[in-house]
């Protein structure tokens, strides 16, 4: 799997992501600076976390219009696989590659903590190593992760199985109005969504930060293992 990570001014989680990708591919991913537009030969493009362009205007708004995102749109139109984590998810919604938007956390605080995610659809390149209903731990760190979408979009996402992950309790209970399990107040506890073709996934938590026993666990590793399998197949 040939993977690349897009780096914007203000991106700061690209090295964690590189570690996770190297762990499953054995090769260091390419780093792509925001001015570059050549994505030829890639199987996977990752938009990592951080504060691209200082979160000016809205999180991800400036990055969505940077030169590299034109190339990412073309890559998406050709059926390329894209993973956006945290700020990467915000950029994907701002650029229209994924529906909905991410609002300020419901309690206004920047959250930096572990959360639990329940897998809602196991038939995607990002979730195939899990079974629907599986729960795994993952760190999250964001100020604007409160997912929202208009009622029609929400109904379509839910109906088409395009919710990849939901915030849940450690035992897999999903309760949208429970701050303990849905800390940022996301609509329907949505933590990650998919594109129509299931090849673009955006999520707020950081599975790349739990991929090695030295990090305290490997709970996020199945996402990357599944991606390699799906892309190589």
């Amino acid at each position: 799997m040939k993977a690349a990570i897009v780096v914007f001014p203000g991106t700061n989680r690209e090295r964690d992501m590189a570690l996770a990708l190297k762990r499953v591919t054995g090769v260091a991913p390419r780093m792509i600076w925001h001015h570059e537009t050549d994505l030829d030969g890639l199987d996977l493009v990752v938009l990592p976390g951080g504060f691209s362009y200082g979160d000016y205007l809205r999180c991800g708004a400036m990055a969505a219009h940077s030169p590299v995102m034109g190339a990412v749109r073309t890559f998406a139109a050709k059926g390329g696989h894209i993973l956006g984590v945290c700020n990467g998810f915000q950029i994907l919604t701002e650029s229209g590659l994924l529906p909905g938007a991410l609002l300020r956390n419901a309690d206004l605080r920047f959250l930096s903590q572990d959360c639990y995610l329940r897998v809602e659809n196991d038939q995607t390149p990002f979730t195939s190593r899990w079974t629907k209903g599986d729960v795994f731990r993952t760190p999250l760190a964001h100020g604007d992760g409160n997912y929202t979408a208009d009622p029609a979009t929400l109904e379509r996402l839910e109906g088409e199985g395009r919710v990849a992950f939901r915030y849940a309790s450690a035992t897999g209970q999903v309760k949208a109005d429970d701050v303990a399990s849905n800390p940022n107040g996301s609509l329907n506890s949505i933590a990650g969504v998919l594109s129509e073709n299931n090849r673009i996934c955006g999520m707020m938590p950081h599975p790349e930060d739990l991929v090695d026993p030295l990090m305290g666990g490997e709970d996020g590793l199945p996402l990357f293992e599944g991606l390699v399998e799906a892309v190589v197949r």
């Binding site: 205007l57 809205r58 708004a61 938007a101 609002l103 208009d150």
Partner: peptide, 9 residues
């Protein structure tokens, strides 16, 4: 429409 506002929200 293109940048200053996010019409979703």
């Amino acid at each position: 429409k293109n940048l200053l506002a996010n019409l979703v929200i």
